[in-house]
Amino acid sequence: MRIPPYYRRPAWQRFFAGMVIGGAISWCIFLYIFGVWQEDHTALIEKQKEEIVDLKNEKKIWQEEYKEINKRTIEQLTIQKINIKITNWEKYKLDLLSVSEIEDSVKDDISMMIAKDIDTVYKSKELIKKIIQNKPIKIHDKRYKLQVKEMVIFTTLSIQLEISFEE
């Protein structure tokens, strides 16, 4: 087997030379386009890195502010709701309607504590006790008084009362 004698024919020589020159030119074009794309992508990656660093710094600042605001908010919590519960109403054979009316009356008396911050309510807990205990209650022609047994102060002001005959 032998190689055909294409090297003697100028048409074939031009064809092969054109292929080599075309291959070299296309390789140069490929390298140029690939280099331009690489530069564009590298610039984009650098821009994104800078953006990520800026966003991380901004996120850190927001988190610090959020923590500070939460700290201040916890320090300044307010009373949202008042719960009044009379514990020994069965002892005096009171009906549920009367108990509910007494609870509502006490709740109305201390309703000014709603939306006050917890520190203020805590400082005025003695005043709340006196407001409740100094109020005479009249049910079925009998006079009762209330005694504060337990007071829990948080976002909900919970007070447990005991009722007794007024002396």
Rank of each mutant, 00 (worst) to 15 (best):
R2Y: 13
R2K: 13
R2L: 11
I3V: 11
P4D: 01
W12L: 12
R14L: 11
F15I: 15
F16R: 10
A17C: 05
A17I: 08
V20G: 00
V20L: 09
I21P: 04
I21M: 09
I21W: 08
I21E: 08
G23A: 10
G23F: 11
S26P: 02
W27I: 04
C28N: 10
F30D: 04
L31M: 02
Y32W: 02
I33A: 14
F34H: 04
V36I: 13
V36E: 14
A43G: 14
A43W: 01
L44R: 15
L44V: 00
E46M: 01
Q48R: 15
Q48H: 13
K49F: 07
E50G: 03
I52W: 06
I52M: 09
V53F: 07
L55G: 03
E58L: 09
K60Y: 11
W62V: 12
W62G: 08
W62S: 05
Q63G: 04
Q63Y: 08
E64Q: 10
E65Q: 14
Y66Q: 05
K67H: 11
K67Y: 10
E68W: 10
I69E: 03
K71M: 03
K71L: 07
T73Q: 11
I74L: 15
L77Y: 03
T78H: 06
T78R: 13
Q80H: 00
I82R: 06
N83R: 14
N83M: 09
I84L: 13
K85V: 12
I86K: 01
I86Q: 00
N88A: 06
W89F: 15
W89P: 01
W89L: 11
W89R: 07
K91Y: 01
K91P: 00
K91E: 05
K93A: 13
D95F: 04
D95N: 15
L96H: 06
L96K: 13
L97K: 15
L97A: 14
S98W: 03
V99C: 08
V99S: 03
V99M: 12
V99Y: 04
S100D: 11
D104W: 12
S105Q: 03
S105H: 03
V106N: 09
K107P: 01
K107E: 10
K107G: 08
D108H: 07
D108I: 02
D108M: 03
D109R: 15
M113I: 14
A115D: 14
K116R: 10
D117A: 04
I118V: 06
D119P: 06
V121Y: 02
Y122N: 12
K123P: 02
K123S: 07
S124R: 12
K125P: 10
K125C: 06
E126P: 09
E126V: 09
I128D: 10
K129T: 06
K129E: 06
K130N: 09
K130E: 12
I131C: 11
I131D: 11
Q133M: 06
I137H: 02
I137C: 03
K138G: 00
I139L: 03
I139M: 07
H140S: 07
D141K: 14
K142F: 06
Y144H: 13
K145L: 05
V148F: 03
V148N: 05
K149R: 04
E150P: 05
E150I: 14
E150D: 12
V152C: 05
I153N: 05
F154V: 00
F154L: 00
F154H: 00
T156H: 00
T156W: 00
T156M: 00
L157Q: 04
Q160P: 05
Q160S: 09
F165T: 11
E166F: 13
E166Q: 12
